[in-house]
Simulated scan of single mutants.
Amino acid sequence: MRTAVQPRLDAAWQALRRWLGATLLPAQCALCGAGCPELLCPPCRAQYLESGRGQARPRCRQCANPLAGIDVAQLCGRCLRQRPAYDATVTAFDYAPPVDQLLLQLKFGARLALAPLFAQLLHVAIQQQTAWDAPQLLCPVPLGPARLAERGFNQALEIARPLARLLDVPLQPRLALRVRETRAQSGVAPQERQANLARAFAIAPEHGALLQGCHVGIVDDVMSSGHTVNALATACKSAGAARVSILAVARTPPH
């Protein structure tokens, strides 16, 4: 007879098997599968960096959507019409091939060794900012308990750990809680995504004092519509944060 905890045990075992397979099998390039001692073989790394470099184009300083002009200090039309709760966004890449495949390997293939690589590339993008105001602490976008149990790890936290070390900024992995299980944004119609995230996040009571007048850096793997990070930024601002910056590995270009 299966107990109430058996599904979670099964999910944990599957996550462990994926992790063991990713770490104990001979090293392979994450893109082409060729044998190599690094995550990416030299040809793929060159193609990856050249095709995925996100700071080669002007971006809105608030949401990081591409801009048609050359003034990197300006805001896009969407942010001018309705300012989001967060104050700035830094991204390393557009969410497009081959970056999307690498992020999917991390998120759904449990290839956790990719997380430090993403942190390094995001750190490079941060260093390229002309006016960078470093946050006082980092907070990864939290997963709900059910999704965390199913996946076995939080990809945003895996990226935030090495990024915090590179930035020399404290990491607060339990600062925010996802208090309401939500549907995956990728499976929600665009017009329903904001409502799907309404009141989904809360600040842990024991950490509320940290946010008073604080600059928070929210770390995520992919920023698409921006509703997820905006909901979390709203929770941070409501708890007393003075400024919120989004640090996302990839940004989905608007269609």
Rank of each mutant, 00 (worst) to 15 (best):
P205E: 11
V99H: 06
Q74Y: 06
A96V: 03
L25N: 12
D220P: 07
A68L: 12
A195D: 07
A68M: 09
A231H: 05
L138K: 02
N230L: 01
A156H: 10
N65T: 01
D87K: 12
L117Q: 11
F93Y: 14
V244D: 04
P26G: 06
N196G: 13
V249C: 13
P162Y: 12
G69R: 02
C76P: 10
Q101R: 15
A85L: 10
L49T: 14
L117D: 07
H215Y: 13
E192H: 14
I159F: 05
V216Q: 12
L102N: 03
Q194P: 00
A11R: 04
G240S: 14
P170R: 06
W132K: 11
F118V: 05
L211H: 05
E192Q: 15
A250K: 06
P116E: 08
G21V: 09
S225V: 09
P98A: 10
A204T: 07
D100P: 08
R193I: 07
D100T: 13
R17K: 12
V99L: 15
G109D: 03
S225K: 08
W19M: 08
E150H: 13
G213S: 06
T228Y: 04
G152T: 12
L148K: 04
Q155M: 05
V222T: 02
E192A: 15
Y48M: 03
G35D: 14
G217P: 07
G187D: 14
T89P: 09
F201A: 05
P97F: 15
L166H: 07
D100F: 06
A85C: 12
G77Y: 06
